[in-house]
Amino acid sequence: MFKKTPLAAGVAAFATIIFAGGCAVADADKSGKVDYTAMTPHELAEYLMFEANGGGGFNLSQEVQEGGTARERMQQDELQKACSIIDDGKPDAETLSAIRAAAQESIVYPEGGIKLGDWKKGRELAWSGFGYRIGHNFDDHSKREAGGTCYNCHQLATDRTGGTVGPSLTGYGKTRGTSDAILKYAYDMIYNPHVYFPCTHMPRFGANGMLTEEKIADIMAYMFDPESPVNE
């Protein structure tokens, strides 16, 4: 998914510093016990995650919705590594611009341009918090489709209570209009928001494969359609 970009290169270097691939760092001492105090905090964190407690502190062998196992899901890609800074600090300016460039490259636009879908479907998708949860209560996508979780963080139509982790999107289409530029901006934000907000806390719904092109079109219709309750 990530092309070889300056970010990938820079982060790869960073990654080797903090964590020398695999868990070779965890040399066992004479007693056969691993010495946690001999590791850096990053090495220990990776060790606790992937090796300790007989195969890792998490259930890593569980199969996940997108295929593969939880082990793969817990491994970080370049962006996740670059944005994982103690106390949630931001990386340096160069890394930030590399993140933006890589995010731009990740975005796949629909053939024939960005279109609005069915706002009624989009309304339910924006509301639904179902999807991609694993562990003790696995979300079975064959029983129900994965949603967009937008309401968890955003207020949209005010007949339902939304979160405030992100800004309010109430009246989005009404206030912003539906120019090509604003549609592209919204599409980019949903697909990979790191284009505009590097190291944002909003998920990459398109780039991470959480929403299909069709679902994005439906959610965008919910945001922009004049009939949608978002724009009442």
Binding site: P41, Q80, I86
Partner: peptide, 17 residues
Amino acid sequence: DAGEVLFARRAGKADFN
């Protein structure tokens, strides 16, 4: 200290820490 790293560590489908 490892917990401090885990708190900031982003991973998974939604990139959360």
